[in-house]
Design a protein around this nucleic acid. Structure first.
Length: 227
DNA sequence: GCGACAG
DNA sequence: ATCTTGTCGC
């Protein structure tokens, strides 16, 4: 089990991000879509009881069949603060990933990578700590701006920060349905991240990896919390 | 100063 | 994230 010290406060957390961001690798294309393994990770909370449960679900990228599932639970160690989400999620997510028997391949998480106030969101953070290729697929545009992409599956438009930097892409994964917001985490190109996201979303807006992980951590939280 | 803000 | 019924549709 890897020990990750939780920052004492928000100032320290931001300093950790500013330090770790120098280790993000952005010049690798990453694994090609449609082959190998893809692992979805997600987290569910019971803030009343201070319990957090993470799930990791390994899929065969070609068939989207489930290859392996794991779960890990812990105590909530950091509050939700916009821009500091990773400190809340990462300890338990790491535990879930480490309990997998398979190598995870590409990791897909809920939230952002580069699309972050300090360019170091959850997907980047998880990538730097594990060395794995990681992308972020978020359901909301956070503070970023975008022009609506075309209405068809596969249409996309740039996700732009205040300073004009392109930090990700709004990607339509289903015809006529609100786009998802893809950004690079670590060791994957944006084009490849979007190709993976599309390949993982044949039937629904949200990638199959995330849907499976979401369902699993919710179920595990209910069971851990029951009684 | 105030509000908005991934999950 | 989470609290939540019925309801529309394949």
């Amino acid at each position: 089990m890897t020990l990750i010290r939780t920052p004492a406060d928000e100032t320290e957390a931001r300093a950790v991000q500013d330090d770790l961001r120098t280790r993000v690798v952005l010049d690798e294309p990453g694994p090609p879509p449609g082959a190998g393994l893809v692992t979805g990770v997600d987290v569910a909370y019971d803030d009343e009881r201070g319990v957090v449960v993470a799930a990791a679900v390994v899929l065969d990228a070609a068939t989207l069949d489930v290859v392996e599932e794991t779960t890990a639970s812990g105590r909530v160690a950091f509050p939700y603060v916009p821009g500091l989400l990773a400190f809340r999620e990462i300890p338990t997510v790491l535990a879930a990933l480490e309990s997998l028997e398979h190598g995870p391949g590409l990791v897909v998480c809920d939230g952002y990578g580069l699309a972050h106030p300090r360019r170091f969101g959850l997907a980047s953070h998880l990538g730097v700590l594990t060395g794995l290729p990681v992308i972020g697929v978020a359901k909301n545009p956070f503070t970023f701006a975008y022009d609506p992409p075309g209405g068809s599956r596969g249409d996309a438009s740039p996700l732009v920060a205040d300073d004009g930097a392109v930090v990700g892409r709004a990607l339509r994964t289903q015809d006529g349905v609100k786009p998802v917001f893809v950004s690079v985490g670590h060791r994957v190109s944006l084009d490849n991240a979007c190709a993976h996201t599309l390949a993982l979303s044949p039937d629904f807006r949200i990638p199959e990896s995330t849907r499976r992980a979401d369902a699993l951590c919710r179920r595990a939280l209910r069971e851990a919390t029951a009684g």
